[in-house]
């Protein structure tokens, strides 16, 4: 099936606006035999179920907070679903309303980047994705949505978005701002030997003094090994590792003097599932909470951020 991929923003002012865009979109999917997914909060779910009537039985409702748990993981899972359906000649149709409030600015940035990358990643899947944005959201969030969605939906009519930006250009804009310097309290390790056994011992030693969960430690070790291995292979010395704590987060930074090719995908697109592909940097994004990358003439910095458990782990219960 060669359905055309679509990724539209639905700006809405109140319930009627929302339903006027969402309901025809969902009904079209139900009629066509698409797999129809609604990712939203409880309030919208109740409204939609009522508006769809018996058709609601054909729709899968998913809680937005669960679905939008992690930018790279959510993108990979959803893309996996879209690919599988595409192979079966079906279409994935998603009404996705991210929970924007309560997210930290860095997280918001990463979700906005995902909105842009979706246009590249899903292009061949024929998926239909509609993203409702309430006009009550902060102005910056709505404005960004117009840059990351090729089209805007008004009622049942799709209009080109004049402010739409090429996804890679948008992603580069997300990384425009220089990273603040690592704090003076950061602990530093100069990487001179290619054997990363010592590096992992050092990272483990630091992490064990923090509340980082044990399974996250292994993820961090895999991630930092990958980034340093890349720096050793493709970067330029000196390579320096720094670790420090920020509120709610453990940060691990790898810096080297090399810089990456401008056409690098930065691990933002999940590799295809059907072959041994290279999944290095993409997997690093999966393993960490947030990955920040800055590369240019001044060298390359990769910051791995891992969320710490908000409540200390209970032991021995």
């Amino acid at each position: 099936m060669s359905e055309t991929f679509s990724h539209r923003v639905l700006p809405y002012d109140g319930v009627d606006d929302f339903l006027a865009g969402a309901v025809p979109f969902l009904n079209a999917g139900i009629d066509a035999g698409d797999r129809v997914l609604v990712v939203t909060g409880l309030g919208s779910e109740v409204l939609l179920r009522e508006a769809l009537g018996p058709g609601a039985g054909e729709v899968e409702f998913v809680d937005a907070n669960q679905w939008y748990a992690h930018p790279s993981r959510t993108l990979a899972d959803c893309l996996g679903d879209a690919d599988r359906l595409c192979e079966q000649g079906r279409r994935l149709r998603v009404l996705g309303e991210p929970a924007w409030t309560g997210r930290r600015p860095l997280e918001v940035l990463e979700w906005q980047r995902v909105e842009a990358i979706v246009n590249v990643a899903f292009a061949e899947t024929g998926a239909a994705i509609l993203c409702p944005y309430a006009r009550t959201l902060p102005a910056g969030v709505v404005a960004s949505a117009r840059r990351t969605h090729p089209e805007t939906l008004r009622g049942e009519q799709a209009l080109d978005n004049p402010s739409y930006v090429d996804p890679w250009a948008y992603s580069a804009m997300c990384d425009q701002e220089a990273l603040p310097d690592a704090p003076a309290r950061a602990e530093r390790l100069d990487i001179v030997r290619p054997d990363l056994f010592w590096l992992r011992a050092w990272v483990t030693d630091y992490a064990r003094r923090t509340p980082l969960a044990e399974e996250d430690l292994q993820r961090l070790l895999v991630a930092v090994t990958e980034v340093v291995t890349n720096a050793l292979r493709h970067g330029a010395p000196p390579i320096v590792l720094r670790m420090w704590m920020e509120p709610g987060e453990l940060v691990c930074e790898v810096k080297d003097d090399g810089f990456w090719a401008t056409d690098s995908a930065f691990g933002l697109i999940p590799p295809r599932a059907d072959g041994p592909g290279r999944f290095g940097l993409w997997a690093v994004r999966l393993l960490c909470s947030i990955v920040q990358i800055r590369t240019g003439k001044g060298g390359t910095t990769v910051r791995l951020r891992l969320s710490l458990p908000s409540v200390p782990a209970v032991v021995g219960v």
Binding site: A76, G80, L217, Q218, A273, F279, A283, L287
Partner: peptide, 15 residues
């Protein structure tokens, strides 16, 4: 913890 990393990458990506 090794299995956990493989689960996250996805067994389907490791044919």
């Amino acid at each position: 913890d090794v299995e956990n990393v493989i689960d996250m990458v996805g067994w389907h990506r490791l044919p």
